[in-house]
Design a protein around this nucleic acid. Sequence first.
DNA 1: CGACCGCCCTAGATCGATCCAATCACGGTG
DNA 2: CACCGTGATTGGATCGATCTAGGGCGGTCG
Lengths: 347, 347
Amino acid sequence: MARSEHRSGSTLPVTPPTLADVAERAGVSRQTVSNAVNNPDLLRPDTLERVRQTIAELGYSPNRAARNLRTRTSSLIGLRFAPAQEGTANAAMDRFVHSLVEASEEVGYHVLLFPGDDDDPIGGYENLLRSTAVDAFVVTDTYLGNPQAAWLSQQRAPFVAFGRPWDDEGARHVWVDVDGAAGIALATQHLIDRGHTRIAWIGWRKDSPIGEDRRSGWVRTMHANGLPTTGLASRVEDVVHSGAEAAAVLLDESAPTAFVCASDTLAMGVLHTLWIRQLAPGKDIAVVGFDDSQVAQVFPVGLTSVRQPLEDVAVEIVRALRALLSHQPVETRGVLLEPTLAIRESS
Amino acid sequence: MARSEHRSGSTLPVTPPTLADVAERAGVSRQTVSNAVNNPDLLRPDTLERVRQTIAELGYSPNRAARNLRTRTSSLIGLRFAPAQEGTANAAMDRFVHSLVEASEEVGYHVLLFPGDDDDPIGGYENLLRSTAVDAFVVTDTYLGNPQAAWLSQQRAPFVAFGRPWDDEGARHVWVDVDGAAGIALATQHLIDRGHTRIAWIGWRKDSPIGEDRRSGWVRTMHANGLPTTGLASRVEDVVHSGAEAAAVLLDESAPTAFVCASDTLAMGVLHTLWIRQLAPGKDIAVVGFDDSQVAQVFPVGLTSVRQPLEDVAVEIVRALRALLSHQPVETRGVLLEPTLAIRESS
DNA sequence: CGACCGCCCTAGATCGATCCAATCACGGTG
DNA sequence: CACCGTGATTGGATCGATCTAGGGCGGTCG
């Protein structure tokens, strides 16, 4: 079936050219054009050149749907984009999404977002999986004891998790995570190097494995330097208000000269208390947060904060996905990346 | 070709069931199953019930790729997700993406993210368009004098812009935007209602049409209330530092009792200056920002800010996309939505 | 000199759902 | 009783790319 419509050079035709169009015009078979695109090595150099020329002339791009159907792949990575919450938490998430989009692009993948409420963690995944709409998933909400990971594993769906399977010893999936304990250790050591000896910890409640992990970095570093931790720790909700209260109590009872916090949100609370008490952050009292969120970077002083290498996380995740999808043997089941410390005026 | 593999009830088979599988099992033709999914009205009630039963038993979902190929649609909406910048600007963007994902889901669309640097604004669009990977685009970066919109229009690609075509009188595309002038007018009137008469404006440089639009809301409201504006306006870069400087100068030279800012970033600068001068925001001097970003919601006092109705923007955009894609006559070429004022301690 | 091998390329089948035209069943009508 | 019309259902063709065989062709080797 020949197509005779005239194609203008600059405007896209109503229906884009197909493989057959290119083949006919170049005087070769469809398969040869396909090979020119996907396996250039198989063609004789002069043929390749001629086909490429024609492809350029017609502005041909392979039809995604047809390719997807035949190859049973989509080059799409599904990511659940949870509903916006007013809070600091998903600021890091958004930075991660940016990084993931770029890392995916590098290897020819695109990111497909789908919504999902916390009530039905499986819903969105199941639809996309059954309709073979995506090749794989990136699961980010592993802090919830991730039923998704378990379910996806059971379905043999390819996925990589951002976050360790804290509770689940039997989990066999691939994951990438940031070493929160190491980050807090970095922060603590930084404060010790600046001469602080009474360094307080404000973290989350005990049922948060991530929070306990971060806390361990503080404990470890303090003890390694022969410094006390008793009476210097507090566990609260992850809201500004709670951080402020905890700071007030600790200041009154234990006289710390520095605070290490499990989140920027809590650090903001500390800053608030300092502000009320007319204590200068960074001079009178040092403060370090976690996540390097935009919230804290500007005012009233720049907040020193542990920064997760989300760009690297994205790259590692994409690397793992590629390995999964090409059915290569999985070398490492988990990758743990080191955060860095963004030092500002508050310490 | 019959499939004889045994399917377990709970785990997904290696290859999902197809239309033909369902048809065979239900004792009907493939087309009837297709109709059961897409045009239930065409089936006799009892047949419909039987087919639906079988679909449920097998856990059948139509293969996306096959459907896309045949119908020449993808149910995907492309959105360029620009690289992360350290700043307030994309905080609103992220909130918008959330809203868009949810609004799209409502009508059966998914959002496909693709990267793009500002150097080559067309790149990502062209690829996706030519490979028919997405049905339509949502263009957000119209503040750049949007070459994308012009290019997409020329390509007859369906798209809706978030943002007015400020400069381009001839633009014929569909857009949705938020009335920034109305938002600032709201903020200004709010301050006037609180008794302020000397209200200063800190905005962007004159070459920003968005900035000039917002500024006009301040001018309009001041004059409508018989209040002066001379000597009370300043135009600076959109960074905290510049906002702080502008506030200092205005305080010294014009003795305002309130500030209206074109962005939360600038408002943060104002708060900084107040802090240095030991002036209490909301008591001594009132401050209002724009974008209701998380940055300013918490510390040191809650910042009153103009909030864009991004959820509604997303809904309107999806509505417009649906109209475009179903080739309905376009009723309205542009939709302008009213922002609201989030009032906090700073005013 | 004919069998054989690699290289380059081609033709037909295929992925799974939907479009299209045709068929079938069945009650009503002349 | 033949005919018609409508509603329900069906089989074949189709979307566009890739997979799988297999076919020319020139060169090499026994």
